[in-house]
Amino acid sequence: MRLSEVVEIIGGTVVCGENPEEQQVDKAFATDLMSDVLTLEAGRILLITGLNHLQTLRTAEMAEISHIVIVRNKKPSKEFLALAKREKMTIILSEKSLYSVSGALYKNGLEPVY
């Protein structure tokens, strides 16, 4: 699924990253437990989470995840956005819940990691 479709489906706002229409994710994983993210196999994964601290980015970086949706209207800090930019990540914000965002993307065909 193109990232621009993700943004449209969830009514999200891109606050970091460029050209979402040129970027693709194959699967999604929703969690607030970063330890779970570190157990995933590699792939073009969209991470959906309510955690907006720096460890979310560091975890994503280690797991080779470049696209993150932050749910529940959580606002990332300036430091968060600066680090995301340095690591060339795309950050999408949503006012909706983890369940709502996950459900909408699932319904529209974005596969789960498992």
């Binding site: 607030d32 970063m34 330890s35 779970d36 570190l38 157990t39 989470t49 601290h53 460890q55 979310t56």
Partner: peptide
């Protein structure tokens, strides 16, 4: 609260 401390770290290092 940071998303760690679920008792998964050391097993994941081993893996």
């Amino acid at each position: 609260q940071m998303g760690f401390g679920a008792g998964m770290g050391l097993p994941n290092i081993k893996k």
